[in-house]
Design a protein around this nucleic acid. Structure first.
Ligand SMILES: [Mn+2]
Ligand SMILES: [Mn+2]
Ligand SMILES: [Zn+2]
Ligand SMILES: [Zn+2]
Lengths: 143, 143
DNA sequence: TCCTTATTCAGACTGAGTCTTAATAAGGAA
DNA sequence: TTCCTTATTAAGACTCAGTCTGAATAAGGA
C-alpha cells in the first residue's frame, strides 16, 4: 500500500498531540488541492462545491494548525480579508497588490529573505511567518 | 505671522482640489501629535480625551488623504486592526510583531527598501505604500 | 451674498473572525 | 474490544472594524 499523501500531515498532528480526525484529514486534502489565493469564506464555498463538507468555524480553528504544518501560507491582507494559498505547489514568494483591480502579482527575492533572517536574529525573534506586500496601482490601471 | 504647522497639509488639499475644512486641519494637528502606533478607534478615543471632537467616520474617510499626504503611514496589521503612526516624527521603518504579547519592534533596512523599488519598477507597478511585517514570538515570550 | 456641491454627523449596516454550548468521536487504559 | 476522558466538532450567536445612507452643514467660487 503506497504512503498516503496525508502521511506527513498526520505525523505532524501526532507530534503535536493533536487528534487525527477525519475532518482534519479531509480539510488537509481539500486545501492542498486548491490553486491560487483564497480567503476563508471563499475556501469553504469552493470545498462545498467540490462536495466536501466542512464548517466555516472548523476551518478557522484549524488555520493555525495548517499554517504551522506548512500546508498553507498567508499571502496578503486586504482591508477586509486575509488571503492564503496552498504551500506545497510553489515555493515561498511575496506580493504586489493592486488596490484598484485587486489583482495580485507575485515576486520572490532571496536577498530580501536572507536580510529578514538576519534582522530576526539580531532581535532574537522567532519568526513564524512574514507578510511583505507592496500596495499600489498596477500598470493596466494607470492607463 | 509665522507659517502655520498645517501649511503643507493645507497646500496638499488645495493641490488635490479637496476642501480645506476646519475638521481636516484639526484632525491633521491631532494626528500629528500622536506618538506610537494607533488604530482608528484608539485614535478617536485619544483625540476625544485631548478635547478634540472628531467622528469615527470622519477619520475613516480621511485616512486615504492623510496617507497620501504622508501625514501618517500604515504600520502593521493584526487579525482585527490596521495600525498607523504619524510619519513626521521618524523616518520610514518596518515591524516585527509578537503575536503573544502584541509588542512591536521596529527595524529599517535600506537595502531591502532599494530592492523593493527595483521589484516595483520591474513590474511597472506604482507602489503607494508597503507592509512588511515579521510575525512570531519575541525573546521574552519564549522564556 | 448666494449657490453649488463636497463634507460632515448620526446611526444603521456588513461581514470577517471569535466564542458558547451541547453533541460527537479520538485514543489511551484495561 | 469496551469504556472513559477529553479534544474536537457543528450551529449559531456575538463582536466590532470598516462601510454606507441620508439629511444637515459649510467651503469656496461666481
Ligand atoms: Mn501568491
Ligand atoms: Mn512603527
Ligand atoms: Zn490594477
Ligand atoms: Zn512577545
Amino acid at each position: 500500500m503506497p504512503k498516503k499523501k496525508n502521511g506527513h500531515f498526520s505525523d505532524f498532528l501526532k507530534r503535536k498531540s493533536l487528534r487525527v480526525t477525519g475532518e482534519r484529514l479531509r480539510l488537509f486534502e481539500g486545501v492542498s488541492r486548491q490553486r491560487g489565493h483564497f480567503n476563508v469564506d471563499g475556501l469553504v464555498r469552493r470545498l462545498h462545491e467540490q462536495g466536501l463538507r466542512v464548517s466555516r468555524d472548523m476551518v478557522y480553528r484549524n488555520l493555525p494548525v495548517l499554517l504551522e504544518a506548512g500546508v498553507i501560507e498567508q499571502s496578503f491582507k486586504t482591508n477586509r480579508d486575509t488571503f492564503y494559498e496552498a504551500a506545497a505547489r510553489k515555493k515561498h514568494h511575496d506580493h504586489l497588490y493592486c488596490r484598484t483591480c485587486n489583482r495580485v502579482v507575485e515576486f520572490s527575492d532571496p536577498v530580501i529573505e536572507e536580510l529578514q533572517k538576519k534582522i530576526a536574529e539580531r532581535f532574537d525573534f522567532k519568526v513564524e511567518f512574514h507578510c511583505h506586500q507592496l500596495v499600489g496601482v498596477c500598470k493596466k490601471c494607470r492607463k
